[in-house]
Design a protein around this nucleic acid. Structure first.
Lengths: 239, 239
DNA sequence: GTATTCAGTGCCATTTTCTGGCACCATAAA
DNA sequence: TTTATGGTGCCAGAAAATGGCACTGAATAC
């Protein structure tokens, strides 16, 4: 078993068990107490915050704060956009590749060293390592992470979505709409949805939506987006 | 220098130089001829196809075919969408998360083992490992990879883009447009662009565009997208 | 045909890294 | 005080990586 795998195993075990003694970890990963202690030391060097308590009932555990922090830092919108862009670039399915390197620099400060190496490996695998940064990422707008699962369900199951929307003038309104598409106007994302009350399409900036929730009872059909040209996307999809 | 880093260095050098003798590689990565040969053998085990020619003017090189193949297999639209989706999911910036696992299974068959592990590490880091697949990815439409760099330049530098477009009826036309946005109507991607000739916005399916090229001389300004509601995106961006 | 240049293999001694065991310290709970 | 626990230093043995050497085989140059 390579060192790397054993480190991963230790972190996984700690995540699963919450807390564990070094002896338990040693048995779990099939190594000696001494080696596990060395590994823990190495993990700490890599940026993992690992608490430890001596004495009866003691043991080691990942700092829950730190786990959260890591998640918050590593999985920002910047990070998401970065990988997204890198992947899309690799598949050559999208423009906007040059954001990758700029974003990478940003997240490298926040991520533990070995995650950065993994990320670099991925990027290398995707042949985006050689790109030179041309422009900065800028502000993507802030989207509250807690709200989005509702979007996912609504999209996938074609259920109406209720939310509270704050428009550019600060006015607030409650909506129940049919989510139809996403529009990227870099750096902002928009939800394109049919508003049955207004009997028309509306576009909502994702960062201005709050308190979304699915209306389980209201399944909708796809509609033609109101573009006056030769493309009628939904005609070409399954009904 | 760890083995892994040296392997990466060798691959990078081969990619850059095209072909190199083992002796050159040894000097480039600071190791002995014997060690480089061992590394090459290991890389071959990992799935890299490396050609070698004995005799004067010989050397080793990455199989261009194989590089393409790897790219085609590992960096398909599925892969791109997968990582994209995983990242977006992690950032909770987008729906469509459940595609991740289904896609992962597909690419695992195509990638060398250690890349798969890296990918899993990334996914683990993003906390998407636990997702269960709910639906398949389906056809994303086919977009010719070779064409997209032109898109990138056009978007970033706001230069006009010329291309040939094949509409739904099979009719073919030449366009020169101002790329303004991307629209995602899963599973298809559309370019939203202003067509100066028709003096109006048009939407182009990405997979129906061929031979795009940038018109270096024609820099454009962003325009309001023609949606009849409360969102006027470009007002909110830099001029 | 001969010499040269290169990839590739097998072997081995050396070097480096990893590992486990031990002794020992510090701390907290029983 | 005893016990269970984390933590450190040290060292010898184990394992892995490395480099050197001799050699083979293939392609090219002359």
């Amino acid at each position: 078993m390579t060192i790397r795998l054993r480190h991963d195993a230790i972190v996984r075990t700690l995540r699963r068990n919450g807390t564990a003694t070094v002896e338990e970890l040693a048995q779990a990963v099939g190594a000696s107490r001494r080696t596990v202690l060395r590994d823990i030391s190495a993990l700490r060097d890599q940026g993992f915050v690992i608490h430890s308590e001596p004495g009866r009932g003691g043991g080691v555990q990942l700092d829950p704060q730190s786990v959260q922090t890591t998640a918050r830092l590593s999985v920002t919108e910047v990070f998401a956009l970065l990988i997204s862009v890198a992947a899309m670039r690799a598949a050559r399915t999208l423009p906007f590749s040059d954001l990758a390197d700029a974003g990478l620099a940003k997240i490298e400060k926040a991520l533990p060293a070995d995650k950065v190496r993994d990320l670099r490996t991925i990027l290398d695998c995707l042949h985006v390592g050689q790109l030179s940064p041309k422009q900065d990422i800028g502000d993507m707008g802030t989207i509250d992470p807690a709200l989005l699962p509702a979007f996912e369900v609504a999209f996938l199951q074609r259920l109406n979505l209720r939310f509270c929307y704050h428009d550019a003038k600060g006015a607030q309104s409650h909506r129940e709409v049919e989510p139809q598409a996403m529009l990227i106007l870099p750096p902002l994302w928009y939800l394109v949805a049919w508003d049955p009350v207004r009997d028309d399409f509306r576009h909502f900036r994702m960062d201005r939506i709050t308190s979304p929730e699915v209306n389980e009872g209201a399944r909708f059909r796809r509609r033609h987006v109101p573009f006056e040209n030769d493309v009628c996307p939904f005609n070409e999809l399954s009904p």
